[in-house]
C-alpha cells in the first residue's frame, strides 16, 4: 500500500497528495449548467453516466408485472486546478429532477450548490431549491441573464421562489468566465459565513 508515500513524502509528491473539492451546479433542463461549467473549466466538460434500473409498471400490461428497464443518467462536469495540491470539480446535476439518487452522490461532501435559474421558467428550479434547502447544503441562486435579467428583477424572483434573505442572489451570464467566477466566489464566501455563524 502507499501509506508511506502519502505520510512521509511531504511536498515532493504534491500531485499525489492533492485535495479535491466540488461544487454542484443545479437547475432545470436546458438552463445552461454545462455552459456555466464550461466557462471556467480547464477541460472541455466531460460527461459521465450512471445506469439505473427503474421498475415501471405499464398500464397496458394486463399481467401488471412490473417490468424493469435501464435508464442512463448523464451529468456533465469540469475541473479547475486551483493549486498544485487543490482541485475543484464542478458537477452539473442531471437535467431530469427525478434522478434524485444521483443527486445524493453528487452533493455528498460538496462545498455547496449554484442553483442556475432561467427567469422565464422559474418552476424548473423548484426541485433543486427544495433539495438543497432540505439537506442544508449551502447554495446561491444565479439568474442566468441571457434573457436580459435586470438587477431590479432579483427581489421579485426571490419572492417568487420563496427563498430567504440569507441566500445570495446573483445575476450571471453563464457564457462569461468572469461572471461565472463571481458566482463561485459568492458561493464559497456564503459557505464560509455559514461556518463562522453556525
Amino acid at each position: 500500500m502507499a501509506f508511506v508515500d502519502s505520510e512521509v513524502s511531504g511536498g515532493t509528491q504534491a500531485d499525489q497528495d492533492a485535495l479535491s473539492v466540488k461544487i454542484v451546479v443545479a437547475g432545470g433542463f436546458g438552463v445552461g449548467k454545462t455552459t456555466f461549467v464550461g466557462a471556467v473549466s480547464e477541460i472541455e466538460p466531460l460527461r459521465t453516466e450512471a445506469l439505473m434500473t427503474e421498475a415501471s409498471t405499464s398500464v397496458d400490461d394486463l399481467s401488471m408485472l412490473p417490468e424493469k428497464r435501464t435508464t442512463t443518467v448523464a451529468m456533465d462536469f469540469g475541473r479547475i486546478t486551483l493549486a498544485d495540491d487543490l482541485v475543484l470539480y464542478l458537477f452539473g446535476t442531471p437535467g431530469q429532477n427525478r434522478f434524485w439518487f444521483m443527486w445524493d452522490d453528487i452533493t455528498r461532501g460538496a462545498i455547496g450548490a449554484v442553483v442556475l435559474v432561467d427567469t422565464r421558467r422559474l418552476a424548473d428550479c423548484f426541485g433543486a431549491i427544495d433539495y438543497v434547502e432540505q439537506r442544508g447544503i449551502p447554495f446561491v441562486v444565479a439568474l442566468n441573464a441571457f434573457n436580459g435579467v435586470q438587477e431590479h428583477d432579483v427581489e421579485d424572483v426571490r419572492d417568487a421562489l420563496q427563498v430567504g434573505p440569507e441566500v445570495p442572489f446573483v445575476v450571471t451570464d453563464a457564457r462569461e468566465r468572469e461572471s461565472v467566477k463571481v458566482v463561485l466566489v459568492t458561493l464559497v464566501e456564503h459557505a464560509m459565513s455559514l461556518i463562522q455563524q453556525p
Binding site: 473539492v21 487543490l86 467566477k181 466566489v185 459557505a191 464560509m192 461556518i195
Partner: peptide, 21 residues
C-alpha cells in the same frame, strides 16, 4: 475533523484560487 467542504482554511484557499483564475 470537519470535512474539507466545512473547513474554513480549505474554503479560503478555494476562494483565493478562484479569484486568481
Amino acid at each position: 475533523s470537519a470535512e474539507p467542504a466545512r473547513n474554513l482554511s480549505v474554503l479560503e484557499r478555494v476562494r483565493d484560487g478562484l479569484r486568481r483564475l
